[in-house]
Design a binder for these strands. Structure first.
Lengths: 202, 202
DNA sequence: GTCTATACTCTGATAGAC
DNA sequence: GTCTATCAGAGTATAGAC
């Protein structure tokens, strides 16, 4: 990406990333076209390529920011807090991400569906390391009898899948619920209930 | 699709649909190319187009079969069975679908991520109708005090998201678990535990 | 910095030989 | 039924005027 020096460059760089997020999230890397991204960004295609040297560069620039944002809620699970409230706070933060950044969620989903060709190193590295760390914490809480005993890694998977579903399958969720629903508000109540019930020791 | 009349036509039609499933599931509709599908199928591109008139025709042919298979487990939830065992059986059947037909799951995910341009009528029609029917059944069971009270539609969403996650995010699941794991076997145990705990009346 | 023009490749689809 | 050849259009990317 061109290092932004002027306000115009700043604005156009942002517009391209915004547009790229739209298009890549909907159609995946190969399904997205520079034509479409340029149109959404309100630029000509050559002008887009003045700011980013290639389609790949736009995609990679988007992915770079993504994983950090994605892992942040899990990283904030506090070892010294109340176990059940910590997990619930994590669930709610993750659901808020789905609500506020659905395109980022779908971009991530597309990348994984393609076999994670760009993100695999990050998944096997920092992501796995963080999950291992937090799984150990959950296990300690289970050993201390403060939350119910469950496979800690699959517990984390369940938080991911349940929250991301509301971003990635948004159109299906809304179509099935019908009009007059607030999917994310209902999901918040539902998931709070669900995990509280699940985690409270027997 | 060409109506198969000979064994060769039968074999080639199948090979094309198999290959199309591979490629569409990984790259989505726009990201898939006839070149790649033909290569995977072991045919030339013109020969592929002898069997299917267009790229669209291959994709639609795959989608047609999909929804029926996808809804089948939910349709089989029996109003006269034991409520908790019926839901658990549904969860296990859905997880088996993820294990045995991961490409179909990813094809579906891709279609929804794109905004369900082809499947929306089926989602608003038969799928919503089936969910409404089964949600009413779940609600009856809740009213009778035979399962815990939860939002029935979001309960169904939770089954979808938790089971499909193991197909759609397979590479991530395996990378995070590390070697020496059987994701689907562990998920079966985990989800059985989870829903039993969740659904048992207080 | 942005545009027009264009090079070159890929993609979906067709024609016609065999 | 399958292949080679090919077309028109879309796709990524570059050159060069302004």
């Amino acid at each position: 990406m061109l290092k932004p020096r002027t306000r115009i460059q700043e604005r156009n760089s942002r517009a391209i990333l915004e547009a790229g997020l739209d298009v890549f999230a909907q159609h995946g890397f190969r399904g997205a076209t520079l034509d479409q991204i340029a149109e959404v960004a309100g630029l000509s295609k050559p002008n887009l390529l003045y700011y980013f040297p290639s389609k790949d560069a736009v995609y990679l620039s988007l992915l770079e920011q993504l994983l950090q944002t994605w892992l942040d809620p899990l990283a904030h699970m506090n070892p010294d807090g109340d176990p059940i409230e910590e997990v619930l706070a994590y669930v709610h933060r993750k659901l808020e991400l789905s609500r506020d950044f659905p395109r980022e969620s779908r971009l991530f989903a597309n990348e994984i569906l393609q076999g994670a060709p760009h993100l695999m190193p990050d998944i096997e590295g920092p992501l796995k390391a963080l999950v291992d760390e937090k799984a150990a914490l959950l296990l300690r809480w289970m050993d201390e009898g403060r939350i119910a005993r469950l496979h800690p890694v699959h517990l984390i998977f369940s938080v991911w899948s349940l929250t991301q579903h509301y971003a990635d399958f948004d159109v299906q969720v809304r179509a099935v619920l019908g009009p007059g629903h607030d999917p994310f508000a209902e999901a918040g109540t539902f998931l709070d209930h669900m995990f509280r019930r699940l985690l409270t020791p027997a």
